[in-house]
Design a protein around this nucleic acid. Sequence first.
RNA 1: GGGCGCUUAGCUCAGUUGGUUAGAGCAUCUCUUUUACAAGGAGAGGGUCGGGGGUUCGAAUCCCUCAGCGCCCACCA
Length: 876
Amino acid sequence: MPSPTWWQYRYTTMIDTPNHTYVVPEKPTLDKIEARWIANWDQIGVNAFDRNATRDNIFSIDTPPPSVSGSLHMGQVFSYTHTDAVARFWRMRGKSVFYPMGWDDNGLPTERRVQNYFGVSCDPTVLFDPDFSPPFNGDVPKNHRAVAISRPNFIQLCEQLTHQDEKIFEGLFRRLGLSVDWSLLYTTIGDHARRTSQHAFLKNLSRGEAYPQEAPTLWDVDFGTAVAQAELEDRERPGAYHSIAFAHGDGNDEVLIETTRPELVASCVALVAHPDDARYVSLIGRTVRTPLFDVEVPVYSHELAQIDKGTGIAMVCTFGDLTDVIWWRELNLPARVIIGRDGRILTEAPEEINTERARAAYAQIAGKTVKQAQTITVEMLRASGDLRAEPRAITHQVKFYERGDRPLEIVSSRQWYIRNGGRDAALRQSFLQRGSELTWHPDFMEHRYDNWVEGLNGDWLISRQRFFGVPIPLWYRINESGEPDYDTPLVPPNERLPIDPSSDVPTGFVESQRGIAGGFIGDPDVMDTWATSSLTPQIAGHWIDDDELFSRVFPMEMRPQAHEIIRTWLFSTIVRSHFEHGTVPWHNAALSGWMLDPNHKKMSKSKGNVVSPSELFDQYGSDAVRYWATSARPGVDTAFSEDQMKVGRKLATKLLNVSKFVLGLEVIDPRTTPSEPIDVAMLQRLAQVVDESTEAFESFDYARVLERTETFFWWFCDDYVELVKTRAYEKTTRSASAVTALHRALSTLQRLFAPLLPFVTEEVWSWWQPDSIHLGPWPTRDKLLGDMVILDSDEEFLSAVGEVLSQIRRSKTEGKTSQRTAVEHLKIFATTAQLNFISSCMDDLRNAGGLGDVEMVAHDQNAIAVQVRLAPNSRS
RNA sequence: GGGCGCUUAGCUCAGUUGGUUAGAGCAUCUCUUUUACAAGGAGAGGGUCGGGGGUUCGAAUCCCUCAGCGCCCACCA
């Protein structure tokens, strides 16, 4: 006798306990099931992370904290559903799932929204006003001039507004069915994240991984801030080559350069040609004179000069582009800066511009924008005869800050950096090594990581000249002559964190000493958003204040994220973890594709092709939306498709109906073991689906689970159920085999679908099972088949029977008659083996096909042939 | 210029170590309503798997090559 198994226990429970008898609705419906189950899950704590779970029994997820400054986008619905499916799988497998949510409310998008919403602007020099209230609340008049407020007051407003937005996001994520443990919520601007971020920064500082440097930096003139390499994007812009003459020798000789930035002639510090370029060999080491400004500049050779570009000799300015910065650094050139941080030409000319004519020329451009200065300079060059050809229009790629509107300039400023291997080959190698320690899903995404790390050309610039971010937690002494001492910053003790050096005072000082000689001054900058979000595992896992928790969840099991931020979020998280913990931050990186519009364009508000998630939830149901999301293979860009949602809704409806059917059958003896060959074969096929689904989920492939389970499910409904339903109505031993098989299959199917369609599966599960389906157990082959006598040729058996059934159906369709039409005579040609299969479930075939006489003929071809004589159709 | 991905039915896509006749959904057409389901069911038509070459008994699948689409990165005097 087989030992009692779990379902026998469960059946017994249901029968013995009146509360657990089947409660199947007369008319099952998907309407409003979401709200009911969301409330139920909250109540019984289905999604709660168990802090007492042991380390190897925890599955931890480094959830991407969405930016909450806008509204929830279908792209987010798409990718968050993928993660949720995986989380639900592991929860059913018995893991305690650490699945937090964070709100990324720190940074520029929030700042802009707050400025517009309240009619304020942040001015760090204004003092904190504890009684401040904003002039407007979302109804700022057009001509209103922003009120300057202190940074702490501004941050209060940011927190207030993001709080409203976050409530809306939470509601939508719940509606989608994300099984997040909301008690683990964090925000990137909250005290805890600020404390973590500042603490991590100070540790980087103490180990020399963070350092300040006065250096040329890419600068957005509108936002007035430095930006990092990872935040750049190229945009195609019109430009023009200008052919300009530089005189040398006694003034009769000249050399022509071509430039797209003639306005920078005043900041030219050298010319550069390639060492192999014969045309300029004689010039190397000599000097030439800049047109208009009469500055003697040297001519150097450098490998980066391109012989075939322009005239082959280039003007080096401080700074026109990043190549200029390289030349400036490697050739030890002086800085002759003419562009200010506001994007205008400095009013004061560099001291080398000192002839009367040069000073006059400079006066023409001083104070002008770069664009205006270009027009004026070209005019002056034309007038002086130094412009040797009319400008030739071209289009070229220009670097922009990804959120900016004007091309980036390069200005020299004091900034904070974190080492990332961009200037250190050995360190770069160790980050490549970390990348290879991860399992990537899909695996080819690792190339993008390697590609990025190998292409780094500088350290990670983390300081931003903005306000709504985590402040650099440092102050500087001001010496007796009023100069800040940047070399030995005043560092706050950990227990004071988080601090805002613009309003907090370093230990040993008082507020009145701020900004005066002998006193102190706070670092004015905040950290880049990524400097904080690179610490999401540490923030969510409470690295700084809960060692016990952190040691259980870190390194995390999984980082889900979009592939376009491999270079930012993924890489920077690895950098921080490598320095702080000497390990990768997670074992698996799951990269989601993009959601595209139905025409395969990237969706965006400006194109007006954005759909609101809540309308889709209302129209199709959350499960149907999730069906669409999880039918996309991992990492593959996928078109938005309401058709897919309709299919998903159909599937959910079918699950309701088939569950109603199976649970409506009378259970003769719950201890029956399925014994009829067709019943056993069906369960064996299902066991195969269980195996494949389990393996697929273990490798994060939710889409394969859906595909496999769904294919089986429709076959189960259309063929198996049709075959056995008559027998299942009987009250015999053979009937009990069918009913038990149907119950086992239903239970298994409901659980296979549960991570993907959490609402409808919970609904149908609740009709006959006492606990939440989402607490498992996940089905296994052993539990499904353990007590049964297994068939050797289950698939051959099923296909032989299926083929006969299918051919009977076809003849009825071709006879243009109802499937109920009786078959007077059926003649089957098949191999002996196939005929054996067929006869072993002949009663089911008779019932399903309405068969009369059946004649079986053995032949030696593999293909089954069937001759059907239909009864005269009484109705026609 | 470097790297990656994609190209299969009218449309959207599966096709997992190469194996009978290449699949699904949607769309189209035909048939079909009282015992789970008509927001259902049963069927049919529709593809020389982007082009070419190669390996193999056998290729949508492996290799080479060409083309188109998309993405990432670099260069941008």
